[in-house]
């Protein structure tokens, strides 16, 4: 089996697991919705303020939910030491990394269809279909950017005692470019983009994703060469 085939097998395995036990997706979704709700309480019922901050809150909900999803993605493997079996299989570690990263990206993309409408309703933002399509594109780029370093660090921290602290500690400063890019561009989509700046922010998100997909793919085999 070639690399892509192996990676897709890993994705299929993860999606199958996800489908059989829908618990993870549902609880992370619930977490995202609760976060969105909490943000509106932090700002107060001022609808203009809420509308201005809607993009930021939406992306923060994604970011906060992502650490839960990411750390779960390798905790599943640690249970019953499944990861040891996975590493014993003739699977290229690079294929394992890209499979895991892709399934994490898909997982984070699945948050969009729920979190976006909730945010639009709670923060009373109007959005047409074209804007919605662009938002989903930006969301995908952000999800890809978050997953690349997130999968690497989730793999590394999955067996450490303080994973729940360490993963956000490592990941949050690292993904600040993703956060800024996504917040700026999604806010522009929601509140209007007179200078048409969305393109350059999307380019930034895309370059972050490309850089970290390549870099972490190179580093992942080293990270797991002594097992995780």
């Amino acid at each position: 089996m070639n690399l892509i085939g192996q990676a897709l097998t890993v994705v299929r395995k993860d999606l199958l697991l996800e489908w059989r036990g829908k618990g993870r997706l549902i609880s992370v979704l619930m977490f995202g919705v609760v976060t969105l709700l909490l943000f509106s309480f932090a700002v107060g019922p001022d609808s203009t303020l809420l509308r201005a901050a809607a993009g930021g809150f939406l992306v923060l909900a994604l970011l906060l939910s992502s650490t839960l999803g990411l750390s779960e993605s390798f905790r599943v493997e640690q249970e019953q030491r499944a990861i040891e079996g996975l590493l014993l299989l003739p699977v290229d570690p690079i294929a394992l990394y890209y499979g895991k990263t892709l399934s994490n990206t898909l997982f984070l993309m699945l948050l969009a269809p729920v979190l976006t409408p909730v945010a639009l309703i709670l923060y009373s933002v109007q959005l047409d279909l074209k804007g919605l399509a662009v938002l989903l594109g930006l969301w995908t780029l952000a999800a890809a950017g978050l997953s690349a370093p997130g999968t690497l660090y989730a793999a590394m921290t999955s067996r450490l005692q303080s994973q729940d602290v360490l993963l956000p500690l490592l990941l949050f400063p690292l993904v600040i470019p993703v956060l800024m890019g996504a917040v700026k561009s999604i806010t522009l989509i929601l509140t209007g983009d007179p200078m048409s700046q969305v393109g350059s922010w999307a380019a930034l998100l895309a370059s972050f994703a490309i850089i970290y997909w390549s870099l972490c793919g190179l580093l992942f085999p080293h990270a797991i060469e002594e097992g995780i």
Partner: peptide, 23 residues
């Protein structure tokens, strides 16, 4: 190994952060 990996990942982020903050 992990220190080396984390250092590389962190350092690569620095120029990205710089340009991002500038924008």
């Amino acid at each position: 190994t992990w220190t080396a990996i984390a250092t590389i990942v962190a350092f690569v982020d620095v120029p990205l952060v710089y340009f991002c903050v500038r924008w």
